[in-house]
Design a protein around this nucleic acid. Structure first.
Lengths: 329, 329
DNA sequence: TAATTTTTTGTAATCGTTTACAATACAAAT
DNA sequence: ATTTGTATTGTAAACGATTACAAAAAATTA
């Protein structure tokens, strides 16, 4: 492992000159440049990022905070983040919190201790107070889930509107009893989507029944399945389901099948996110398409801008209702 | 952002003493320890990992190389890697190659340039020559896919045996025409699983028909769907399918449904990996369970050992055949 | 009390870069 | 040939920690 000093010695120049060659500065003669490049090649030299980063007071690492890597919704976003980060000369430190406070703190420490230049938080369960405090001295962007008035820039979609459209679609094709499978209302997106659901019902003079709203403890398939079980156990069965996540919808779909019912004939169902799976279910799932990749890309762009000290503005991207077999007529 | 010098000054001690307090060394008086701790609190000091890492010549980062983050198979493994890494005081740098050589090189450079202490490669398409060369000076572990005789330790399962069991199961329940949806034979796991398939057929005196083996260009659902289309287009239709990945199997299942056929009545199907989604399909997918979490855990353990200069041995973990509805008899 | 040992603290080098500033080399102008 | 100006190069000080080694302080022993 050669150092810049050894290269300098080998090339018969000073370390400053080697550094200049390394960083492509033009104030170095062709002749010396070649000497240096030869030395680099000969010694198989690779500049240490540890040294460089210390000197430059940067890590060129972006911390990406997600609740759970197994949720395909995040995979797609991460895709967008990573591609953009690479383009901008950064790499990503993937951090799964599992809604665990200690774990979260370990990650926050990474940015406090300069091992990461900024954070993209996608964890709805993030400790928002800590995040806001951290944002005073560090670059932070929220993606998908965000805190209103936190002052932390975010990129997201209009959840209420999206939910509204989803439910309106169900009403339009004739459904009068529509259940909602929602996650915990402590999350903003959950409240917003519920608002959209309610607005659609109210607008159509449909009654809001508490028994038609089920809250889950998580987003795994199993929670969707449980929720559906609860719904189907009621006497007056709904004819349609709106689930706030494709994973929940897919779990619900499974339970519907298990009970020998047919989708969409007996029960229609609509999900949220448009993860790749949602098109592989039987029948294919109607869903709200979130621009996951674009969200990731935007978040990364914003974060790097923030790191560079520029001002950035929050972004609300477009969503789309994708009608497939699970809500056919 | 205070430095260790400012803390030392504030506490009226030397930087060495502060460092000793920081690293919990016992050779420091209770009285001075308290002085230092007070100063740390007062200045809100957080030691810079950039400085520490340079001095210690380590980054405490593990590079995890995967082809694609959207494949749930990898998510589970990453889970295991991350939890273990954290326990051992490391963090993970997630790197998606997308089977892109340039991208791969960017990542390799991170370890060459000391920004990562080692690599866990899960990319079947990795440039193995480069990897072997890198392994001369750096800690590297292969996970799932590996190169025989490369000298690089790996953790994996017995792919041939697993495939053999899967196909034998199909034969046992009466299938005589079994198709194989395989990925590209340039991958070791693909060759091994094909071997298992062939062995099962030969052992039962069944003919090996080329037309029953379809190779895909990737692992997305869509490739499984395409492959199935090809298979169903043949005159003499197989009665069972073995796909080397749940994703492919799920795509195939979709196509079977699309053509109005029933699983398992018309065609039985079996996948590989036991990703969470495989239990949500209709019908639920029979599959080979890989110990993803354990593989990740083992890989991380091995890598850290390797980083510490210890010797490590390759590992072949157990798999399991999980029989579900898609092969009910 | 003085000498000796042990414990605690401090000094300064080091890890491997980048870069302000100083110094030198070279070319152009007189 | 000397001066001036510009283009290259070098010196040395950062960046922020850890740690040999030396020095000082405290504890032990005689």
């Amino acid at each position: 492992m050669a150092t810049i000093h050894q290269v300098a010695k080998q090339a018969g120049v000073s370390v400053a000159t080697v550094s200049r060659v390394l960083n492509g500065q033009n104030s170095v003669t062709a002749k010396t440049r070649i000497k240096v490049e030869d030395a680099i090649k000969k010694l198989n030299y690779e500049p240490s990022l540890l040294g460089r980063n210390l000197r430059n007071s940067e890590s060129r690492l972006l911390l990406v905070l997600i609740p759970n890597i197994s949720n395909p919704f995040y995979s797609e976003i991460i895709n967008g983040i990573e591609n953009t980060a690479i383009e901008l000369g950064y790499n990503i430190l993937l951090c799964e919190t599992d809604t665990n406070v200690e774990r979260e703190n370990i990650y926050f420490d990474l940015v406090r201790k300069k091992m990461a230049d900024g954070i993209i938080s996608m964890d709805p369960a993030v400790n928002i107070d800590t995040l806001i405090q951290l944002a005073e001295n560090h670059a932070i962007i929220q993606c998908s889930e965000y805190a209103v008035d936190s002052g932390i820039p975010y990129v997201t979609i209009d959840n209420a509107e999206a939910a509204y459209r989803a439910v309106k679609h169900l009403i339009r094709i004739g459904h009068q009893r529509i259940a909602l499978i929602n996650s915990d209302e402590k999350y903003l997106y959950a409240r917003q989507r519920q608002l959209g659901y309610q607005k659609a019902l109210e607008e159509n003079k449909m009654e809001l029944e508490d028994s038609l709203i089920v809250h889950t403890q998580g987003l795994d398939f199993s929670y969707g399945q449980q929720a559906m079980k609860k719904i189907l156990a009621q006497e007056e069965r709904p004819t349609a389901i709106f689930a706030v996540s494709d994973l929940l919808a897919i779990g619900a779909l499974k339970e519907i099948h298990n009970q020998g019912l047919k989708v969409p004939e007996d029960i229609a169902i609509i999900g949220f996110d448009k993860i790749a799976f949602s098109n592989m279910t039987y029948p294919a799932l109607t869903t709200i398409s979130q621009p996951m990749y674009a969200m990731g890309k935007a978040a990364a762009d914003m974060l790097v801008k923030k790191i560079q000290g520029k001002e950035v503005e929050s972004l609300i991207l477009d969503h789309e209702l994708v009608i497939r077999e699970s809500t056919l007529g």
